[in-house]
Write a protein that binds this DNA or RNA. Structure first.
Length: 600
RNA sequence: CGGGGUGUAGCGCAGCUUGGCUAGCGCGCCACGUUCGGGACGUGGAGGCCGGAGGUUCAAAUCCUCUCACCCCGACCA
């Protein structure tokens, strides 16, 4: 039984000044966590209690799915990460250190290499597969900017699983098994979630989905279609490719004098003033930014240090979304195209870049990729590669041919849903924010190849194992649950993760009759298997106890006080505020029912 | 890494512009008394290297220089 008279906790009346996110504020105020370092938190008894409940549920669901738990050190040698090139690729996000002899070590940010080597160490036959193993481990990442308390720390707890299969069908089955286990886990945690398509990014591999808790404080932006249910991380959204248009009747393109129009807005204004151009093109509607083809040059930095310029063509009403670009061009990283770079490419006239000078077969040799909306037969106004000049009526597929398409344009609410478009439906996308609470990947053979994990197949042939990796942010899930359930009075835990089933408030002071009844009730409830938090403080007024009970957020609050004169106690539902009086004689049975454990 | 902000008691803050008495307020903490179903009240206490270093000055929380830390936005982020 937890007793507030002796529990190691101090609740705060005011929010700590360094916390902005509600879950962070309340977890500090309610005495669940304390900041110990940038991005590092100490768990106090109440918080550790909740953390262990969350961890237990995750573990139970993994075990139930047939995955086996192992445990690696967090302090890892350099060599395996050297073999997969991640010692370098992980960059400054990796915590590196040396032992007394100057030998390099790292604090594990994720454990693909170690798991791969462990399986290689023990297994060598197709008969040993499939295998899924996992651990619940503290991970270390030197995040540039930890934030929001537990939501993004530099030290955090992750449940990471890895599956090992002989072939793609096996990987697919292992992936689905994890997906199903994750759904059960998050349902049990009472955590609302959306499964979105994601990019596998630096992890490599083919298929990847994220589990996002749809909450405003989340760092991930995703889209979903209200019509068909499609959901995707913005990085993974695909733009439907329009059918090719017939351009046989299109007017020829022409270069027009457009002085002082370095921006899309100035260009559109000028075009709308030039009725002569509209007449020549047979254009009857007003020009908008969507009629313009904006060409943005970026510089790709490849892992080997090579720099390569890339031209991206997209409708002028949209910005380039660098996150989307990065997801497309990985492992290369996009950088800005600097003034110095422009100096090296005199053909590029800043503000007036057009397709003529772009493309691998053009004079500049710059690879030219366009947004899928820039499809065959579409007509554009774009730069004429000469200051103060634009070309109108430039038709894709007639007047210019890009090297390919790229998903680089920002996604906007109201964009066409790609799934609906494929089915000739009319759904549009809406955007929302989410906290990434889980991520599942089909890794494929990247790690197995790099570390030479092979097994003998039925024919006695060495085959490379195919892998999946699957993560749940356990400590982050605690914060996400808090964030999803809190209200203006405080935390509000779902029962299974709450630090107690029942918070008993003794609404009096001193060792009086009320306290005696409360003590007896607490003992009986605890003896019946319920977890009890008893506010037995004798020098605190009832008002303070009520406020603290609401702040701490145990799902059921029992008030033992003046109702005793009528033989009743008061039972409150923390989440919905409902209150009812229960005869003292029926208290145990009633509370057991409320707590989901009827009978005795 | 870029931009903005903040460092004064356990927590939340004022004081700094225009240097000057014992550095102040609320909460919390300790003691005594009153109170006791919605963050009670009175009286008396404890608690501070004013983030750090250097400088200016008779005198620095306050002005100057450097530095460190933290928070927010962006960049970054299986």
């Amino acid at each position: 039984m937890l007793r507030l008279s002796s529990l190691f906790v101090r609740t705060l009346r005011e929010n700590p000044s360094d916390a902005e996110v509600p879950s962070h504020q309340l977890m500090v105020r309610a005495g669940y966590i304390r900041r110990a370092a940038p991005g590092g938190y100490t768990w106090l008894p109440l918080g550790w209690n909740v953390y262990r409940n969350v961890e237990r549920i995750v573990r139970e669901e993994m075990d139930a799915a047939g995955f086996q738990e192992v445990h690696f050190p967090a302090l890892l040698p350099r060599e395996p990460y050297e073999a997969t090139n991640r010692w370098t690729e992980y960059g400054p996000n990796l915590f590196r250190l040396q032992d007394r002899r100057g030998v390099d070590y790292l604090l594990g940010p994720t454990h693909e290499e170690m798991f791969t080597l462990l399986v290689k160490d023990l297994y060598s036959s197709y008969k040993d597969l499939p295998l899924s193993i996992y651990q619940i481990q503290t991970k270390f990442r030197d995040e540039a900017r930890p934030r929001a308390g537990l939501l993004r720390g530099r030290e955090f707890v992750m449940k990471d699983s890895y599956s090992f299969d002989i072939d793609d069908a096996g990987l697919s089955a292992s992936y689905e098994a994890h997906r199903a286990a994750y759904i059960k886990t998050f349902e049990r945690l009472n955590l609302p979630f959306v499964i979105v398509s994601a990019m596998s990014g630096a992890m490599g591999g083919s298929k990847s989905e994220e589990f996002l808790a749809p909450l405003e404080v989340g760092e991930d932006t995703f889209v979903r279609c209200v019509t068909c249910g499609y959901a995707a991380n913005t990085e993974a959204v695909t733009v439907p490719t329009p059918a090719a248009l017939d351009f046989s009747q299109a007017a020829p393109s022409q270069v027009v004098d457009t002085p002082d129009t370095p921006t899309i807005a100035t260009l559109v204004d000028l075009l709308n003033a030039r009725t002569d151009i509209n007449a020549a093109l047979g254009k009857t509607t007003a020009w908008t930014a969507t009629d313009t083809l904006k060409n943005v040059i970026i510089m790709l930095r490849h892992p080997d240090g090579r720099r390569e310029p890339l031209a991206i063509g997209l409708p002028g009403d949209r910005e380039v979304d660098m996150k989307r670009v990065e997801a497309q061009v990985g492992p290369a990283e996009p950088d800005a195209f600097t003034e110095a770079d422009f100096a090296n490419y005199p053909a590029l006239v800043k503000g007036y870049i057009g397709p003529d000078v772009l493309g691998s077969t053009s004079s500049s040799k710059i690879r030219y990729l366009v947004d899928p909306r820039v499809s065959t037969g579409t007509s554009w106004v774009t730069g004429a590669n000469k200051a103060g000049n634009h070309v109108v009526g430039l038709v894709c597929g007639r007047d210019f041919t890009p090297d390919g398409t790229i998903e680089a344009a920002e996604v906007l609410p109201g964009d066409t849903c790609p799934t609906c478009a494929a089915n000739h439906a009319t759904g549009v996308l809406e955007m929302a924010r989410g906290i990434e609470i889980g991520h599942i990947f089909q890794l494929g053979r990247k790690y197995a190849e790099a570390l030479n994990l092979t097994v003998l197949d039925q024919n006695g042939k060495q085959v490379v194992v195919t892998m999946g990796s699957y993560g749940i942010g356990v400590s982050r899930a605690v914060a996400a649950i808090a964030e999803a359930t809190l209200d203006d009075m405080g935390l509000c835990w779902p029962r299974e993760v709450a630090p107690a089933d029942i918070h008993i408030v003794i609404a009096s002071k001193g060792a009086d009759a009320i306290a005696e009844v409360a003590e007896r009730l607490a003992s009986e409830l605890e003896a019946s298997g319920l977890r009890i938090l008893l506010d037995d403080r004798t020098s605190v007024s009832p008002g303070v106890k009520f406020k603290d009970a609401e702040l701490i957020g145990v799902p059921t609050i029992v008030v033992v006080g003046k109702g005793l004169a009528d033989g009743v106690i008061e039972v409150r539902n923390r989440a919905n505020g409902e209150r009812s009086d229960v005869a003292i004689g029926e208290a145990v049975a009633t509370l057991r029912t409320i707590c989901g454990r009827p009978g005795n």
